[in-house]
Design a protein around this nucleic acid. Sequence first.
DNA 1: CTATGGTTGTACTTTCAGGTACAGCAGGAA
DNA 2: TTCCTGCTGTACCTGAAAGTACAACCATAG
Lengths: 221, 221
Amino acid sequence: MPGRPAARSKKGAETRLRIILAAADLFHRQGVHATSPDEVIAASKTGKGQFYHYFKSKEGLVHEVLQHHLQAMTAGSAGLSYEIDSWQDLERWFAAHLELQQRFGMTRGCPFGTIGNEVTENDELIRQDLNRIFEHMHHRLEVFFIKEQAQGRLDPDASAAGLAHFCIAAVQGAMLMGKLARHSRPVETTIREALAHLEQWRRRQAPPTATAGRGRRAPGP
Amino acid sequence: MPGRPAARSKKGAETRLRIILAAADLFHRQGVHATSPDEVIAASKTGKGQFYHYFKSKEGLVHEVLQHHLQAMTAGSAGLSYEIDSWQDLERWFAAHLELQQRFGMTRGCPFGTIGNEVTENDELIRQDLNRIFEHMHHRLEVFFIKEQAQGRLDPDASAAGLAHFCIAAVQGAMLMGKLARHSRPVETTIREALAHLEQWRRRQAPPTATAGRGRRAPGP
DNA sequence: CTATGGTTGTACTTTCAGGTACAGCAGGAA
DNA sequence: TTCCTGCTGTACCTGAAAGTACAACCATAG
């Protein structure tokens, strides 16, 4: 039970949320290290009193921001939908990342990747928070792939978990490239290739007859 | 012509290099923002005098570190070979990233990705340095793919530039995931899928007869 | 109305990041 | 030798980042 992380009145909850949202935006724009409490305070139109009333430290704020993101993801209220129940949803999920990048003039990456790359060996708590976020994304994707396999719309030889990692990694890496290039082409082409790869696994029931083992599996160990 | 970026004596050059190498390692471990000049000075066994004698500011040091990396890449003296002249070389290139991650106990990502995600709109110089580094990697890969196409070992319909982006993004994203998960599985599986995707394009001359247009192309616009 | 507990604003403190100033040294050229 | 120039060490300075202290507010339960 930490200091006093929660607000006990409606007004307090609003203030707290304003701080979290302002911080989330600043973290996305410039990362955690480059963002000072004073900046967050200014952006959220609050004061130092409130800040340290609701968050025990800057690290505590980061933690709460990530918790907020995670909650938004699970609740479906995130800016980007992680409800993936069809291939079309999956394509939308990819496209949403491209749009996210474009929305900020190609100057930002993924909020989680931005924060994630700042993590060091001392930031255990934050690292775990981020890991949970990515595990959640991974889980959503994996479940979708497994379901598709069960429905016979995805090669049963495919590794659902592996494909999920692959999708996330492609998107994360692509957004980094796009941000550094200040261009959306890296994102577009990477997404295109990633989708093409999924397309390969898709609808390939690997009839045990002819084409089996013709190099379609990922190379073994 | 900035202050005095270059060393004029052999001893000076050694000191300068010690600082660059120490900084490169610290940046890789904990990022730029989390690394202070004092830390670099301590790690390189030098003093403030030397530091500001050879580098006009911390940002200047970052720039020089990246230039050093770029030079190492072009000279082939980087820890990781970017000479890609065969599919085996390409597999080695992927594998080298996995080894890099494992060498540090899965606690670090790619040095460039780590720095790259810290870049904001104010760090134009650094952003351009990083972009050049990634462009260099991209160019190496693209040239390889083009050559393979010329040799008839890669589908001429493939986008060499797109595949290059795809490879880099996959590796970058994978290393971020691996660092956050403190595990190498995300990297392994992502690399596996990426290679499987390349395998698809490879040796597929798309004989204009039978299999043409059977969903192998990336989806068009 | 008045305590009581949550909420808010302001002033202060501490530490450290980043950088300057400057003095001393070293080693080759003249 | 004595310069001259580059190299090295130390002391110092300034501002900002992070956090503390505390007083005042307000809302409402009793």
